[in-house]
Design a protein around this nucleic acid. Structure first.
Lengths: 144, 144
DNA sequence: ATTAATTAGGACAAATTAGTCCTATTTGTT
DNA sequence: AACAAATAGGACTAATTTGTCCTAATTAAT
């Protein structure tokens, strides 16, 4: 569904949100450890999220990654997915046709429409705070 | 969502179904042309579908691919997807966790569950005949 | 029998995605 | 000023997916 990069990006964002919620800036090393991802690869993805202004980075000693407290509840999964995988997941045709719309639908266009819309809605209505709180309360997990 | 191989496999299957509906066996060359896919690569995918007994092949002159008429309406998209991409699309975790279930859910487990179920249901309830007839009647298209 | 049309399949090549390594830069601490 | 702890980023490697090419096997028609 999502690329590996996107999976790491989502998990990392959730972890950063969780820490930032408690006022703790976190290092790449800690993030990679906690979400069980390759460190250097995760670094690239975080750079990407920083460039897209989804998370903030602070260089130097005691630096790391953080999300401003007030932003945690406003960042939607859709922003992260779009930043990393683009938005092909929304308008992309299920069978890979270059043109596929109401006027010229692929054979599964209608069947996919509902699913894509549901996915889109889910990504646009789920924010980092919800997910971070679930982990803090032990309801969900970021690794294993 | 699906791999390229799976997209080609689905399109090819639909095209073969459509021809078989009219009693016409079709060659690899014709299939690749009609679904706009690379010929040799498509050959591999068709071999796979033959091994999985989803379509039938006939070697030699005047040979080609076909689906028994009585089978066209019974072949579900889910069988094709499973043969080519496996069933990770069903149980695979949205964030790539190795373990992700009700007891140990990832942060987006619940959000994804609905979408995956809808996708599963769609693939299991859509058969090749429906799709082939839509194309024959000009309602949907296999290329462009 | 020979030929032409066709699928089967192995070995390879190209493209994309995933991941690593090294160096530069920044910044707080001493 | 020097050092240590961090992110930034370029260049590289590895793995996977996508795609090609060639040869073998099969089969209908002549």
């Amino acid at each position: 569904m999502f690329s590996k990069a996107c999976e790491y990006g989502l998990k990392a964002s959730i972890y950063i949100a969780m820490s930032s919620y408690d006022g703790n800036r976190v290092s790449l090393k800690e993030i990679a450890k906690e979400i069980d991802s390759p460190e250097a690869f995760t670094a690239k993805i975080l750079q990407d999220l920083v460039r897209n202004k989804i998370i903030k980075s602070v260089k130097g000693a005691y630096g790391g990654f953080e999300i401003e407290k007030g932003d945690i509840a406003t960042i939607k999964l859709s922003q992260i997915v779009k930043a990393i995988d683009g938005d092909s997941i929304y308008h992309g045709c299920g069978l890979g046709l270059h043109v596929c719309d109401e006027n010229h639908p692929c054979p599964v266009h209608d069947q996919f429409k509902g699913i894509r819309n549901q996915l889109k809605h889910m990504l646009e209505s789920t924010n980092l705070e919800q997910l971070a709180l679930d982990i803090k309360s032990g309801v969900s997990f970021l690794k294993l």
